[in-house]
Amino acid sequence: MGGCCGQNGDVPTTLEPVRVEEPDVDEALANDKPWVVIVWNDPINLMSYVTYVLKSLFGYSDDKATALMLDVHHKGKAAVAHGNREEAEMHVFRLHEHSLWASMEHDV
């Protein structure tokens, strides 16, 4: 629920406020679209470190974390997690805490 245009108490209403809310609904739907968390290649972080961080943050197996790290290294980036906006933001935050070059975008 946004901060504006909500409950109107005893103020007489017109049709306009209803229309104003429509973009908020679209926005909410857009935010419900799944997000993907990307880790980008960088030349400083050690390969072993990146693998270990992916294992410890996401509980991935050695094989899966290594495969993702190699994707980052060779292809320049890898999708390491998916989720709604809130989940993806938390993943990005924790990756940033570990100094990985992470961002998020809408899943396609």
Partner: peptide
């Protein structure tokens, strides 16, 4: 920039919101 990289590369509005909400928390954590 390297310690606090952007979370949203192509969306300045969402990025500003992320920085506003998370930057201080990330500083504190570090």
């Amino acid at each position: 920039h390297r310690l606090f990289p952007p979370a949203f590369r192509d969306d300045p509005e969402k990025e500003a919101e992320y920085q506003r909400l998370m930057r201080e928390e990330l500083v504190t954590s570090r």
